[in-house]
């Protein structure tokens, strides 16, 4: 059982890890895929780097710094988080499952919605972002998952408990994984229907009729997990208090996915706040 599992190894996640580790907490940092920071050619407005530093170097330095302090940092794709009770969270990755007393979500911001005509109009009318919550309504019906990664496969597997008619739609993206479900890589022009969702229209003009669409774009990000757990969101951002705590005890969020300034300094600051508040929170719970 970890004191805290941090998802995301960018400036917010690593900063939180440093504060937690220095307070002798048992911390694990999980990351997957490219950080937004890594893509930044040059960071020229961050304290202490005359001439600037490349985003990639700053990112790698952060991870190295945490590892030097003894923080465990692992590259593993998180596919699900669950809340079992106070101080008891499970973090499921592709190959492992970890237990932790607290969770920090620091995965950066990610677009939840694909840019397809009709998606927003049919949210709650057949468009869903949570297979485990809404799969129940699609017993023996025809559904699709929009996505092209392990996250899409994991959502499809959840749906497999209620229906066998599941297609993965990649919306023009490639699909490189092994799938027991049919995969359709055509680009989607529109989704629509009358009261509820009824069809997907592809760019070759053909239609696929269905009853439900589950959205699972790219790698599962903080906002995806947050939606499933019941973390209060403000559009695609996670809502936090002044100490980076969400509405669920033990779940914190920091960095780009809390909205506001998309800057390294803000992410570092928020990571520090989250780390310090967890130290305080765990102490209060010890009684």
């Amino acid at each position: 059982m970890y004191d805290s599992v941090i998802i995301g190894a960018g400036p917010a996640g690593i900063s939180a890890a440093l504060y937690l580790k220095r307070a002798n907490k048992n911390v694990l940092v999980l990351y997957h895929g490219e950080s937004q920071l890594e893509k930044a050619h040059l960071i020229d407005n961050y304290y202490g780097f005359p001439g600037g530093i490349s985003g990639k170097d700053l990112y790698n330095n952060g991870i190295k710094q945490a590892q030097n302090l003894g923080v465990e940092v692992k590259e593993e794709e998180v596919i699900n988080l669950s809340f079992n009770g106070p101080l008891d969270f499970s973090i499921k990755t592709l190959n492992n499952e970890y237990k932790s007393k607290t969770i920090i979500i620091a995965t950066g911001n990610k677009k939840l919605r694909p840019n397809i005509k009709g998606i927003v109009d049919f949210e709650g009318k057949g468009i869903s972002y949570c297979a485990i919550c809404d799969g129940f309504f699609y017993r023996k019906k025809k559904v699709a998952v929009i996505g092209n990664s392990n996250y899409a496969l994991s959502e499809a597997e959840d749906l497999h408990n209620v229906t066998s008619d599941i297609t993965i739609l990649t919306n023009g993206e490639s699909f490189d994984l092994k799938s027991e479900f049919p995969v359709d890589t055509r680009k989607i022009v529109e989704v629509g229907g009358e009261e509820k969702i009824q069809y997907v229209l592809f760019d070759d003009g053909s239609k696929m009729e269905l009853n439900g669409i589950f959205i699972a774009l790219g790698t599962a990000g903080g906002a995806d997990f947050a939606k499933k757990l019941g973390v209060m969101m403000n559009k695609d951002s996670i809502e936090v208090n002044e100490n980076m705590k969400t509405n669920i005890n033990g779940i914190y969020a920091c960095g780009n996915l809390t909205g506001g300034l998309l800057q390294v300094n803000k992410a570092v600051y928020e990571g520090a706040l989250a780390g310090l508040d967890i130290v305080k929170y765990l102490k209060e719970q010890e009684v």
Partner: peptide, 8 residues
């Protein structure tokens, strides 16, 4: 069994 329902 629905997480967000528990918070609602």
């Amino acid at each position: 069994w629905c997480g967000p329902c528990k918070m609602q």
